[in-house]
């Protein structure tokens, strides 16, 4: 019997170590493939390299970073088997509120003329609390009324957008202090994105929080039976997603030096797309931050690749939609393969 066990062990680890990583590996191979296609097309159609252009790459990374921050939160929500459609609106509303506490005193039409030139921590904390609040409402609704996450966060999506418009009656909020603006300048958004990604990679992989997140998405009933406080956990996960949406909103506002009521529209779908492209399963239980990170870069490469090839923006949107659907179809097929291989 000992022999048998030994005979099985040597060839098995290979298989197992590959399995959990396979989605990420697939995504990585996809990324390399897509980048190479654009490189080849670049030389053929534009007569220049797509990849070896530092300026293009840095623009691409910057574009990805903001929505990537949202995608980190959305990834965790999707792993629990839920969805968050409110992130774009929450980012927009947060940007408005945070910016209104970050204005300079020299600007005569500040939202709060008596509250100008505040230290950066104040708009930052106020903004993050707004996102946390929105996320808490999402989480409480989903955990305690048992309405589908789709509906709860759709409601929040509309409500938060309403808040963003109502806050200044549609007027943009501009002229932030230099310290606030610095949150969005240069490579800061990328650093924030990577720090958030690293933090939640560790949380998902090495903590009880992560284990329970996967368990709930995998089999909510089993999680409940095992004594996991499913309701509390869902509230935490949605609150984190709201918090990260707020962070993204603050960064966008700081980067653009202005906040507008229409900011962040469709960010939620781009974030979901990044997660799904990176192998996060919409049915819950599977996915990782590393996957979403790769998904985000794939997303960025595709968008900047199309721009590079001077593809019409309308086509870009159409193709983006097709890519999202393709990623979900791939996920459905993976599941079917798994079910039939049992």
């Amino acid at each position: 019997m000992a022999n048998q066990a030994q005979a099985i062990t040597p060839d098995k680890p290979d298989e197992t170590h590959k399995r959990p990583r396979s989605h990420e590996l697939n995504a990585l191979l996809g990324l390399v493939g897509i980048a190479l296609i654009f490189e080849i097309l670049g030389w053929m159609l534009q007569g220049q390299s797509f990849l070896f252009n530092p300026q293009r790459l840095s623009i691409m990374i910057l574009q990805v970073a903001v929505i990537g921050i949202i995608a980190i939160g959305v990834t965790q929500v999707i792993i629990t088997g839920g969805i968050d459609l409110s992130s774009g609106s929450v980012a927009g509303a947060t940007a408005m509120v945070a910016m209104s506490f970050a204005q300079v005193s020299t600007y005569p039409r500040a939202v709060y003329p008596e509250w100008t030139d505040l230290p950066v921590i104040i708009p930052l904390l106020i903004g993050l609390s707004c996102g946390l609040f929105a996320g808490l409402i999402n989480g409480l609704l989903i955990a305690f009324t048992r309405i589908p996450p789709f509906i709860a966060t759709l409601g929040m999506m509309v409500t938060a957008r309403g808040v963003a418009k109502w806050y200044t009656k549609g007027q943009p909020v501009s002229f932030p202090t230099d310290t606030f603006a610095s949150l969005g300048q240069g490579m800061t958004p990328v650093i924030i994105f990577l720090a958030v990604a690293a933090l939640f990679h560790v949380a998902l992989k090495y903590t009880v929080y992560g284990k329970h997140t996967y368990a709930i998405g995998s089999n909510e009933q089993a999680a409940r039976m095992s004594g996991i406080n499913v309701e509390r956990h869902l509230v935490i996960v949605y609150a984190i997603a709201g918090l990260l949406a707020a962070l993204a909103g603050i960064v966008v506002a700081a980067r653009g030096l202005t906040a507008q009521a229409g900011m962040g529209i469709m960010y939620e779908l781009d974030a979901i797309a990044m997660a799904v492209i990176g192998g996060v399963s919409l049915s819950g239980g599977r996915g990782s931050i590393v996957g979403t990170l790769i998904g985000a870069v794939i997303f960025g490469v595709i968008i900047s690749g199309f721009t590079f090839l001077r593809l019409d923006a309308y086509y870009q949107e159409m193709i983006k939609g097709a890519i999202i659907v393709a990623a979900v179809v791939a996920d459905v097929y993976r599941q079917r393969m798994r079910a039939s291989s049992r």
């Binding site: 284990k211 089999n219 999680a223 004594g227």
Partner: peptide, 19 residues
Amino acid sequence: NLALADDLDVPSNIFLGRE
């Protein structure tokens, strides 16, 4: 109905809820 979380490995399932 097996009260197991499909996507987790064996130790995670055995210790689910009491990690």
